[in-house]
Nucleic acid binder design. Structure first.
Length: 455
RNA sequence: GGCGACGUAGCCAAGUGGUUAAGGCGGGGGUCUGCAAAACCCCUAUUCGGCGGUUCGAAUCCGCCCGUCGCCUCCA
C-alpha cells in the first residue's frame, strides 16, 4: 500500500511502526456551530482510509479530538448566554448523530481538550524545562526559533512568513511567530489551574497531548484537512518533537482537499456553507459519499445540488445491481474487478478508479443476471467492496419512508396491478403518474412491481 | 508579494512518456415492455487551457503565457 505523505511531498510505501497495528489520529472539529459538508468530507475521507486499512488486515486504532475550549466557543457561548461546556456538548452530540447518518465508523476515542489538561500541562512544563517554551504574564509561548525544522511540513521558513506581513504584534512574544501553548484566563472565561496561573490551553497543544496519550510518541497516520497544515500541524510537530527529543510525530501526514461551494472554500468564518443536515434532508448519505469519493481525496470537491443528484443516481445504479437475481448458469467471477479495485485503493486511496471498477462490476452483474448466470459471488464482492470498504450503506429508499406513507404507496401499487391485469392501462398509468409525483418510481417484473423513492 | 495545487467531452472526474484517453451524470439511437421505468447494446474528447521546446513518440517532461483555487489569520 502506498500513501502520499505531505511532509515528504511524495507517495511512499506504507508500513506501520508496529506490524499490523495502524495508529491513526485525525484532527476533529471545534464544536461551536453546526457541522457542514466540508466536515463530512474530512470524516468520510478518513473513514475510507480506515475501512481500507481494516479490509487489508490492519488493526486500526483511530482517535479524533474535539476542541471544546477556544475563543469562538467562548464568544458563541456568551452570545447565547449558555455555559461553554453545554454549547460544546450540544454540538458534539449533534456531530455524533451526523456521523452515524453518514455511515462513518466511530473512532475508538474522541478525547475532548478540556479532559486533557493535565497531559497538556505536563507537555508544556516539559517544553519550558527544555527551553523550548517560555512563560510571559500568565501565557506560555512556544519558541519557534528553537525548533530547527519549523516550517518543514508547510514548506515555508520563518523569513518567508514574515514577508506575508500580516502578523499581529504581541508584546509578550519574543518572536512574532511564537504561538500560545497556554493562555492566561480573562475574567469570566472557563479556566484551569496551572503553574503559570489560571488559564486555558492553546489550540495546538491538545493534539500533541492526545496523540501521545492515546497512541504514543509516533503515529502511523496523522490526518486532517489541508487547511490545518499551517499553522496547526506545523505547530503540533514543533511542540511534540521538541517534547519527544526529536522523535517524529507521525510517519505519514495525510490531508484531504477542501469542499468548495461555487468557486470558494466552504468555511464557517465566511459563512458560505451547506450543513450536513441540509444535505441529508435533500439527498442520501450515499450520494454525499459518492460525490466526495468521485474525486481524489487530495483534490477539492465542489458541492452542488445537481452534482449531489447525479451522485445519487450513480449509487442507485450500484444498488440496482445488488438487487437483481441471476440464475443457475455460469458463475460470474468478480476477481478481476476486485483486483482492480484493490490496486486502486492501495495506490493512495484512488477512490475514483476504485469506483470505476465497481461500476464495471455492476454492469457485468446485470448482464450476467439477464443471461441467467450465477451472480451471487459477484454481488457479494460488490456488497463487500462498495459497502465495507467504500462505506456505502446501500440503504433501500423504502427504509426511510414512514410506515403510513409506505402503506399508501403499496395500496396504489396494488390497485395499479389489478388494473393492469384487467388491461385497463390508462387508469394504471394514471396511478403511475400519481406515484411519480410522489417521487416514487416503479419497476415492473414478472413477480410484480417494485417501488422505490427516486431521492 | 511568497509558497503550493489545478485547468481532460455538455457536466463531474481518472489517467502523468508508447495499444482504441477509465468511470459516473446528461444526451441520441436500439433491445425489452401494453406503454414506461430499470437493465442491456451502440453512439456522444482524432484530443487533453494557449504558444513554443525536448523526444522516434507527450494529455503526461521543460519554458513562457492565460485562467482558477488553496495556504501565508480562526478554519475539516
Amino acid at each position: 500500500m502506498r500513501i502520499y505523505d505531505t511532509l515528504e511531498g511524495r507517495v511512499r510505501d506504507f508500513a506501520p511502526l508496529d506490524g499490523k497495528a495502524a495508529r491513526m489520529y485525525v484532527c476533529g472539529v471545534t464544536p461551536y456551530a453546526e457541522a457542514h459538508v466540508g466536515h463530512a468530507m474530512q470524516a468520510i475521507v478518513f473513514d475510507v482510509v480506515r475501512r481500507h486499512l481494516e479490509h487489508r488486515g490492519y488493526v486500526v486504532r483511530h482517535v479524533q479530538n474535539f476542541t471544546d475550549i477556544d475563543d469562538k466557543l467562548i464568544d458563541r457561548a456568551n452570545q447565547e448566554g449558555a455555559p461553554v461546556a453545554d454549547l460544546a456538548e450540544r454540538h458534539i452530540a449533534a456531530y455524533f448523530r451526523l456521523l452515524e447518518a453518514l455511515n462513518v465508523r466511530p473512532a475508538h476515542h474522541y478525547p475532548r481538550a478540556t479532559e486533557q489538561t493535565p497531559q497538556m500541562l505536563e507537555i508544556i512544563g516539559g517544553l519550558v524545562a527544555r527551553g523550548a517554551a517560555y512563560a510571559a504574564a500568565g501565557d506560555v509561548y512556544f519558541r519557534v526559533t528553537r525548533a530547527p525544522g519549523y516550517g518543514k511540513l508547510s514548506r515555508r521558513s520563518l523569513e518567508m512568513m514574515f514577508a506575508g506581513a500580516r502578523i499581529e504584534a504581541n508584546a509578550q512574544k519574543e518572536h512574532p511567530m511564537d504561538f500560545a501553548l497556554w493562555k492566561a484566563a480573562k475574567p469570566g472565561e472557563p479556566s484551569w489551574d496551572s503553574p503559570w496561573g489560571p488559564g486555558r490551553p492553546g489550540w495546538h497543544i491538545e493534539c500533541s497531548a492526545m496523540a501521545l496519550n492515546y497512541l504514543g510518541r509516533t503515529l502511523d497516520i496523522h490526518g486532517g484537512g489541508q487547511d490545518l497544515v499551517f499553522p496547526h500541524h506545523e505547530n503540533e510537530i514543533a511542540q511534540s518533537e521538541a517534547f519527544n527529543d526529536g522523535q517524529p510525530l507521525a510517519r505519514f501526514w495525510m490531508h484531504n482537499g477542501m469542499m468548495l461551494l461555487g468557486q470558494e472554500k466552504m468555511s464557517k468564518s465566511i459563512g458560505n456553507l451547506v450543513t450536513i443536515a441540509d444535505a441529508l434532508a435533500a439527498h442520501s448519505a450515499d450520494a454525499l459519499r459518492h460525490l466526495i469519493l468521485s474525486s481524489h481525496y487530495r483534490s477539492p470537491v465542489t458541492y452542488s445540488d445537481d452534482l449531489m443528484a447525479a451522485s445519487g443516481r450513480a449509487v442507485a445504479r450500484l444498488r440496482q445491481a445488488l438487487a437483481v437475481s441471476g440464475g443457475a448458469g455460469a458463475a460470474l467471477d468478480p476477481d478481476p474487478h476486485r483486483a482492480r479495485f484493490l490496486d486502486a485503493m492501495d495506490d493512495d486511496f484512488s477512490t475514483p478508479q476504485a469506483l470505476a471498477a465497481l461500476f464495471d462490476l455492476a454492469r457485468a452483474v446485470n448482464r450476467a443476471a439477464a443471461e441467467g448466470g450465477d451472480v451471487q459471488a459477484a454481488q457479494e464482492a460488490l456488497r463487500t467492496l462498495g459497502g465495507e470498504v467504500i462505506g456505502f450503506a446501500f440503504a433501500e429508499p423504502q427504509a426511510a419512508v414512514d410506515p403510513g406513507l409506505a402503506r399508501r404507496i403499496q395500496d396504489l401499487v396494488d390497485r395499479r396491478a389489478r388494473l393492469r391485469a384487467e388491461r385497463r392501462f390508462a387508469e394504471a398509468d394514471a396511478i403511475r403518474d400519481e406515484l411519480a409525483a410522489m417521487n416514487v418510481s416503479l419497476t415492473d417484473s414478472p413477480q410484480g412491481a417494485v417501488w422505490q423513492l427516486t431521492q
